[in-house]
Design a protein around this nucleic acid. Sequence first.
DNA 1: GCGGTGACGAAGC
DNA 2: AGCTTCGCCACCG
Length: 119
Amino acid sequence: MKKTKKSKDFYDKVYQVVRSIPYGRVTSYGAIAKFIGSPQSARMVGWALNVSHKVQPPVPAHRVVNRNGLLTGRSHFAGNYIMEDLLKSEGVEVENNGIVDFEKKYWEPSNNSLRSNDN
DNA sequence: GCGGTGACGAAGC
DNA sequence: AGCTTCGCCACCG
């Protein structure tokens, strides 16, 4: 009964990592892609997040921004304000479509964090 | 089955 | 320093 995971594995990993993002933290597509094993496949991460809205438990895609810290995918949410509003609600300051102190808020995916949240 | 596209990223110009 | 091209691979027509 092998199911030939194919790309499903990639998607699943993306969701796992994104869900593991701590409150008030953000990460980048490339970081997730790299963590998965395809550092150049950052686009696939974005595509995975594109369908993440129908995945459950819900994936906090608003915590995922590009490597610049810009909210590039905000227009893919229910509203253009959703992503920014959610981030602000979590204590992440957003200005000019970008995350303030992105380096401080930046969270890098790690296997340790997937098992238990102990930073 | 192929070409165009994409919530990215890095390199090239 | 800003724009363009390539790569990556899955999805859509």
